[in-house]
Design a protein around this nucleic acid. Structure first.
Length: 342
DNA sequence: AATCCGGGGGA
DNA sequence: TCCCCAGGATT
């Protein structure tokens, strides 16, 4: 794996090239941390431009600490799982207060930090500090299951996979080994149609020998996606300002700035109940958006208004691209603002 | 142990 | 349309 990594490692902005890492040079822990958080349930392709923007804006922990959560959420807009961004900011606070702006290098302490779990603590320890740790992510689970021909769903195999991973992890260059596994999983040992013909560990692979790479790991049945509907309300003042709200910290799109909306109910539309009085008009077009657990259809209601209750935030009509607005709300704004000829 | 939490690339 | 992505926190 290490030999393969030396030749084929992906060139990624949070990494040190194996040319240097084999000499013991290590990447910036801050960059490793930011990348690992962004890469949680997010592909390299999607995370990379966000990482570059983030590092340009906040190149170190001090600069991150000095900015606001709102600014971080604004940059995170469109990346999803917004709690990650809020945890990042909270974590920076703790790192400065308790660890002089660095990272503790004990798993127990890392696990106490917000947003850092079993995987991310191991990744930081081994990639940023060269401390051997068992790094198990989705790639590793798939590779190990195939390599040893483990028959079962990933959730049942987890303890076994961890044991196998302990037994195959080298003590030399543990960080590069972890990253080599991820590269193998992303480019060769893919979920669908793995490229076994160019795999560096094919000769050791049980499922390749058995011809079972297409059924290992075994797929779990996924719950069916539900469908929800609701109303969303775009109110524009005479001075071209839009009424917005900030969603509660916990729950869907927590802490993000959104248009007011009704409940989102299963299958049928809920009662149309505008957040405040206005001359509400329904638009013909609806907004569709897909979340992990449900698909959403929103019917857009628009109104010109004179004033709104002061619990609402008024934003200029052209604000949305630089604020903490989630993708579904950007879609809604694009549609709704057409009505007002913006 | 389940469930919640976004969004998009790629097939 | 469906799968899956360098998972973590909550229940």
């Amino acid at each position: 794996m290490i030999e393969w990594y030396d030749q084929y490692a992906r060139d990624l902005p949070w990494r040190i090239s194996p040319v240097f890492s084999k000499k013991g040079i290590k990447p910036d822990p801050y960059r490793v941390w930011i990348s690992e958080i962004m890469l949680q349930q997010t592909s390299v392709k999607v995370a990379t431009p966000f990482f570059l923007k983030f590092i340009e804006k906040w190149p170190n922990i001090l600069s991150l600490h000095q900015t606001s959560e709102t600014e971080v959420l604004a940059l995170w807009s469109g990346l999803g799982y917004y709690r990650r961004a809020r945890n990042l900011k909270a974590c920076a606070e703790i790192l400065l207060r308790e660890y002089e702006g660095g990272f503790p290098i004990e798993e127990k302490k890392l696990l106490k930090l917000p947003g850092i779990g079993k995987y991310t603590s191991a990744a930081i320890l081994t990639i940023a500090f060269g401390i051997p740790a068992i790094v198990v992510d989705g790639n590793v689970e798939r590779i190990i299951a195939r390599l040893f021909g483990l028959d079962g769903t990933i959730s049942k195999l987890k303890p076994e996979i961890r044991t196998y991973m302990m037994n195959v992890s080298p003590s030399a260059r543990p960080g590069d080994f972890a990253q080599a596994m991820m590269d193998l999983g992303a480019t060769i040992c893919k979920p669908l149609n793995p490229e076994c013909m160019i795999c560096p560990i094919r000769d050791s692979c049980k499922s390749y020998k058995d011809g079972t790479t297409n059924i290992i790991p075994r797929k779990t049945k996924k719950p069916i996606k539900t469908f929800r509907k609701g109303y969303i309300y775009l109110a524009v003042t005479k001075s071209n300002e839009i009424a917005m709200i900030v969603r509660p910290k916990s729950g869907l799109l927590g802490g993000m700035m959104c248009l007011p909306s009704s409940e989102w109910t299963e299958k049928k539309y809920p009662k149309n109940s505008p957040p405040f009085p206005g001359e509400w008009v329904a638009l013909d077009q609806t907004i569709r958006h897909s979340f992990t657990h449900f698909d959403l259809e929103l019917r857009m209601m628009v109104s010109s208004i004179f004033s709104v209750p002061n619990s609402y935030i008024l934003k200029p009509f052209n604000f949305s691209l630089t604020e903490k607005v989630p993708s579904v709300m950007k879609k809604a704004l694009v549609l709704g603002l057409k009505y007002f000829h913006f």
